[in-house]
Computed example of a mutant assay.
Amino acid sequence: MLKSLNQWCFPAGMPLEEVMSVSSRAGFEAIELNLYAPDGVGFTLDTTAAEAEAIGRLARNYGLQLRSLSTGLMGRNPLSSPDASVREQGRRVVLKQLELAQLLGIDTVLVVPGVVNAETSYDQCYERSQRELVTLAGEAEKRGVRIGVENVWNKFLLSPLEMARYLDEIGSPNVRAYFDVGNVLLFGFPEHWIRILGERIVKVHVKDFKTAVGNGGGFVPLLAGDVNWAAVRTALQDIGYADTLTAEVSPYAGDPHQCAYDTSNQLDVIIGRK
C-alpha cells in the first residue's frame, strides 16, 4: 500500500509547491489534491488543460503520484437535492473532476453521493443520487476514470450491505467505493465494512476517531483514536487492496509542516512498515 495525504492536511491557501515539497520530504508517495471554486489553490472549476498539466509536472518533480482527486464542492451541490439546478451544478463538479483526471492519468475521483436532511428524505436521497450516478457512469467509462463513492457523515449509506447494494444497482464497473475508515467508527467496524465491500473498494481514506466523544471533535491524529488498525490492515490485505492509504487529518495550528511528518510515520505503522 502507498502512503498518501490529502491537500486538506495543510492550511487553506498554502501554495501548491510548498504542499508538495513538504509532502515529498515527509516521505509520501502520492498526494490527493482537491477541486475548488475558482479562487482556490490548485485545481479549480476554471482550471485549463495547460494549467492542469503544469500541476501534474509539479507533482512529478517532487516524486508524487496523483492517483485520486477529491472535492468539497459536492456539499453545496448534492446530487440528491430536490432542486434540479443544484443537481446540475453537482454534475458539473463531477464532470470537471473526470476531465482533469483523464488528462493527468488519475484513476479515481471522489464523490459524496448526497445528503439526507430536512428537505431530502432517505429514499429520495437514494433514488436521486443513484439516478445521477447512473448518468455520470457513462462519462466515467468513456474517460477511463472511476467514480469513488465515499461514506461520510451525511446520514446516508449507514450500512456496508446497503452501500454494496447501492453500488451494484448502478451497475457500472466505473462506480465503486471510496472507503473512509474513520467515518464508520461511530456506528460500525471498518474491518467489517472492508470485507463486505471487498473488491468494490478502489481507494481508502484514513483518519482516526474517539467514539466516546461522539461528534466532530472526536477526530484525532492517526493511532490516537479507537480504530483497530491491525484489523483494518489485515482486512485490506485479505481483499487484495494494494493502492493508496490517503490520510485526511486536520493540520496542526502550531506547525502545519510537522503534521505531514507525523502522519507519514503513523502511516508506516498502519501499513506495517514499522
Rank of each mutant, 00 (worst) to 15 (best):
Q7I: 01
Q7R: 02
W8V: 03
C9R: 00
C9E: 14
P11N: 08
A12S: 14
G13M: 13
L16S: 01
S21E: 07
V22S: 10
R25C: 02
N34K: 08
P38E: 05
P38R: 12
G40V: 03
T44S: 08
D46C: 04
T48N: 04
E53C: 02
I55C: 05
R57S: 08
R57V: 07
L58Q: 05
A59S: 06
S68H: 03
S70A: 14
T71R: 09
T71L: 05
P78L: 11
L79R: 06
L79G: 05
S80W: 00
P82Q: 11
D83I: 04
V86P: 11
R87G: 08
E88R: 15
E88Y: 03
G90I: 02
R91W: 05
R92E: 11
V93R: 13
Q97N: 04
E99Y: 11
L104S: 02
G105W: 13
G105M: 12
I106F: 04
I106L: 11
L110C: 09
G114L: 04
N117Y: 03
T120P: 06
D123P: 00
Y126E: 14
S129N: 11
E132L: 12
T135L: 15
L136F: 15
K142S: 14
R146T: 03
N151W: 02
K155A: 08
F156I: 01
L157N: 03
L157T: 06
S159M: 07
P160K: 00
E162T: 13
Y166R: 04
L167M: 13
L167K: 09
D168F: 09
P173D: 13
A177V: 12
Y178L: 14
Y178V: 01
Y178D: 05
V181D: 13
V184K: 04
L186C: 01
F189N: 06
P190F: 02
E191F: 06
I194R: 06
G198R: 01
V202Q: 08
D208L: 04
K210E: 04
T211R: 15
G218W: 05
V220H: 03
V220Y: 01
A230E: 14
A235M: 11
L236G: 01
Q237G: 15
A242D: 14
D243P: 00
S250L: 07
A253G: 14
A253L: 15
G254V: 05
H257K: 13
Q258F: 11
Y261L: 11
Y261S: 05
D262H: 12
D262P: 00
N265A: 12
Q266C: 06
D268F: 00
G272Q: 05
